Amino acid sequence: MLIIGLTGSIGMGKSTTAAMFREHGAPVYDADAAVHDLYDVGGAAVGPVGEAFPGVVQGGAVDRELLRQRVLGDPEALKRLNAIVHPLVGIDRQSFFAQAQAKGADMVILDIPLLYETGGDARMDAVVVVSAPADMQRERVLARPGMTPERFDAILAQQMADAEKRARAHYVVDTGQGLDHARVQVTEIVNALRARAAAAAAPGPVEAETKAGH
């Protein structure tokens, strides 16, 4: 089973692209959704995050906006937060892997916004980067409720430059040319990955000869 990282900077269309992979039957693990569950009432991260950042827990859940204000622009605070959350996400992800494998999936997609920034790409069989022109990215993000240019710039400052992500990617999906074009690209990527998975699963010459001999 191939483990494929799906990443891209804010506003690039990663969630839409993840849905396209789902359309091809590839299970998708949404790291943001997993963290949201950990922060929700009864979530495993509520207690330790509340202890590390007093005041961010409201009504039994982590207030993500209050937490964002506490860690934005503070590398040490972000490091403390990651040390709490990453192991919990890892446990949840292992459960996802087990379910996908039990269903016979030939690949899984890990939707991780900060994949390169956290070094997670080293554990992937391949990485798909979702990209779009900078002006389109900015327009998309600033159209979101509550978003400001200052906040957008602060988020970008925490993310690896899009050009570098594209250069390091095994595959790039360009959402700047419309959904139909992006869907074609995803189909080509899935076909290439499935061919790779099939080749990896095929017996080698020695193995094939042994089986034939039996």
Rank of each mutant, 00 (worst) to 15 (best):
residue 11 G to M: 01
residue 9 S to W: 01
residue 41 V to L: 10
residue 73 G to T: 12
residue 28 V to H: 00
residue 43 G to R: 07
residue 32 D to H: 09
residue 67 L to N: 04
residue 68 R to E: 06
residue 19 A to V: 09
residue 37 D to M: 13
residue 33 A to H: 04
residue 21 F to H: 00
residue 12 M to Q: 01
residue 14 K to W: 07
residue 41 V to Q: 13
residue 10 I to M: 12
residue 84 I to E: 12
residue 25 G to K: 03
residue 29 Y to S: 12
residue 52 A to D: 11
residue 17 T to V: 15
residue 26 A to M: 14
residue 23 E to I: 04
residue 27 P to T: 05
residue 83 A to C: 11
residue 33 A to I: 05
residue 14 K to M: 06
residue 65 E to Q: 14
residue 82 N to I: 10
residue 60 G to Q: 06
residue 18 A to S: 13
residue 26 A to Q: 07
residue 83 A to N: 15
residue 31 A to P: 05
residue 30 D to H: 14
residue 34 A to T: 15
residue 16 T to C: 02
residue 39 Y to I: 03
residue 27 P to Q: 02
residue 60 G to T: 01
residue 31 A to M: 06
residue 55 G to W: 09
residue 72 L to P: 00
residue 68 R to W: 05
residue 39 Y to V: 08
residue 82 N to S: 15
residue 73 G to A: 14
residue 36 H to D: 09
residue 34 A to N: 06
residue 55 G to V: 00
residue 51 E to T: 13
residue 26 A to C: 13
residue 50 G to W: 02
residue 14 K to F: 03
residue 65 E to D: 13
residue 64 R to M: 05
residue 67 L to H: 12
residue 70 R to E: 14
residue 30 D to L: 04
residue 16 T to G: 12
residue 75 P to I: 14
residue 51 E to I: 14
residue 21 F to G: 01
residue 17 T to P: 03
residue 38 L to E: 02
residue 84 I to A: 11
residue 78 L to P: 08
residue 72 L to I: 08
residue 76 E to Q: 15
residue 47 G to M: 10
residue 65 E to K: 14
residue 21 F to L: 08
residue 22 R to H: 04
residue 45 A to W: 05
residue 62 V to M: 02
residue 24 H to F: 04
residue 40 D to C: 08
residue 64 R to V: 13
residue 22 R to T: 13
residue 26 A to N: 05
residue 20 M to L: 15
residue 63 D to G: 10
residue 33 A to Q: 06
residue 34 A to H: 00
residue 12 M to V: 05
residue 57 V to M: 07
residue 24 H to T: 00
residue 17 T to C: 08
residue 47 G to V: 13
residue 34 A to R: 02
residue 55 G to S: 05
residue 51 E to N: 10
residue 37 D to V: 15
residue 69 Q to W: 07
residue 55 G to F: 08
residue 48 P to W: 00
residue 45 A to S: 09
residue 80 R to G: 03
residue 30 D to A: 07
residue 8 G to A: 04
residue 52 A to M: 13
residue 72 L to Y: 01
residue 76 E to C: 13
residue 69 Q to N: 14
residue 74 D to L: 07
residue 44 A to P: 10
residue 19 A to D: 06
residue 19 A to N: 14
residue 64 R to F: 11
residue 23 E to K: 13
residue 82 N to W: 06
residue 24 H to V: 00
residue 22 R to E: 13
residue 35 V to L: 12
residue 51 E to A: 15
residue 38 L to V: 01
residue 75 P to N: 14
residue 46 V to P: 13
residue 52 A to R: 14
residue 12 M to F: 01
residue 8 G to W: 06
residue 65 E to N: 15
residue 49 V to E: 04
residue 67 L to T: 07
residue 41 V to F: 06
residue 49 V to K: 05
residue 40 D to H: 15
residue 16 T to S: 12
